[in-house]
């Protein structure tokens, strides 16, 4: 989606606000919310975060976006109702979802490697050293292809293996496993002759995002 979240290469978005040794959490509620999201095991929130209207997205802090996205998703999934969220009290008529995450599983949740790489043998369409171009696609739903790569030519640096296309994971029940490649884009290819000659951007791209150059 050509949303505000796809901001690579934009200018004028304010201050970075850099602070050395800035903490990961600024307020106690942020870590509680973060833990709540993990405890709910509702899967990714990216689609929901990306659907927040641009003016709200820019005004909200990072964890406020997570809060909004979590609520939108669990209401949509029927796990809670809007009335319950508004009142803060359970409605006896609303259904419960799967059993809650136990402390035993929670303990190793982050350190347990649930591999996302797919054990599927698929022919790779592109090879290391080959030039590839970002396809000119404008999906209205979730994608991991930033718009700054569209129409731009880069070189395949590595074949990462086979992963499910994220675009499909969010919109359909069908998985679309395919090779993911690490692509190197020269800064000048992306940003023009003003860019320093020896700078570059590296990014992983799913096969569907690319075409032969």
């Amino acid at each position: 989606m050509n949303g505000i979240h796809d901001m690579g290469g934009m200018q004028g978005l304010g201050e970075i606000g850099y602070k050395e040794s800035a903490p990961g959490f600024n307020e106690p509620w942020e870590v509680r919310l973060f833990a709540l999201v993990q405890a709910m095991r509702t899967g990714g929130l990216r689609t929901y975060i990306e659907s927040i209207p641009a003016p709200d997205y820019l005004r909200m802090g990072y964890y406020e976006r997570w809060y909004t996205a979590l609520i939108t998703k669990i209401i949509e999934r029927g796990i809670v109702t809007r009335a319950e969220v508004d009142s803060g009290r359970p409605d006896t008529a609303s259904v419960n979802a799967s059993p809650a995450l136990t402390p035993e599983i929670a303990r190793d949740l982050l350190f347990r490697s649930t591999k996302t790489e797919q054990d599927v043998e698929l022919r790779a369409q592109f090879h290391i050293g080959e030039s590839v171009r970002g396809r000119n696609i404008n999906p209205a739903t979730h994608t991991r292809m930033p718009r700054y790569t569209r129409g731009k030519t880069g070189v395949v640096e590595r074949d990462r293996g086979v992963f499910n296309l994220p675009d499909n994971e969010e919109t359909s029940a069908e998985h679309k496993p395919q090779h993911v490649y690490l692509i190197r884009y020269a800064g000048r290819e992306l940003w023009g002759e003003e860019a320093p000659p020896n700078d570059s951007v590296y990014i992983d791209m799913w096969e569907d995002y690319l075409e032969p150059a």
């Binding site: 990961g24 959490f25 870590v31 509680r32 973060f34 833990a35 709540l36 993990q38 405890a39 709910m40 796990i79 809670v80 319950e84 359970p90 609303s94 419960n96 979802a97 059993p99 809650a100 995450l101 136990t102 402390p103 599983i105 929670a106 303990r107 949740l109 982050l110």
Partner: peptide, 16 residues
């Protein structure tokens, strides 16, 4: 609603 176990939540907070 029984969707979250408070002890599991404490474990997660401690982890992060």
């Amino acid at each position: 609603k029984g969707l979250v176990d408070p002890d599991a939540l404490d474990v997660l907070v401690d982890t992060y």
